[in-house]
Amino acid sequence: MLELRIAGRDFGQPVLGEIFVGIERGDRICLMGPSGIGKTTLLNAIAGLDKSIPESAVLGREVLRVGYLFQEHRLLPWKSLMSNLRLVGASKREAEELLMRVGLTGYGAYLPDQLSLGMARRAALARCLAVKPDLLLLDEPFASLDPIMVAELKALVSGILDAQPDMAMICVTHDDKDVVSLANRLWYLNGKPASLQWTDTVGDPQRLEELLGRLRQG
């Protein structure tokens, strides 16, 4: 579905080394790695935000619809939730359905900054879905939320993944449990400049723990 070859990326000092990523329909990937290693940089590259990557290094992105849940909500703060959803192409009815789906029925007229962090993140997730994505990128979707909100949001994401088996997902996380519950593949970013290691077998918590232990030691 999408292939991307990154020759390397540096911001003053090298961040990413040579990396090749291939994403297929239905892939559920958890992207892990130490803090500051370049996970968001890699996600931005996949989303097409890195202008230093030549077009020739990318295959299949022109036709790809991407929904990106950034670490911050990045909704337009001067637009209501409804307008934010309409702006990316949702009809009024679709927008209302999406708000219902993420548990924000009746909040269409609210401005993003009137909402709590968890609600704003759900609204941003609704915007991801509004573009009917082929690829859903989640950058630490469960960070800095209280445990109840995390559980709600995880259930929501699981539901979305179950409902759209064709959609691919990449989720940046630090929590092993997310890998077990959400992913069928694991990407691990490590080293300086960072390189990517991946594996397809993440179903068994026991084996995953061993694997991550090895990866974390480098």
Partner: peptide
Amino acid sequence: YRLEQMASVYRFSLWQRLRDVWMP
């Protein structure tokens, strides 16, 4: 720049960027 990135991902037209992202 964060809103710029958002507008890129969601493929805002130049007019949308101007009116809804830049002007405010």
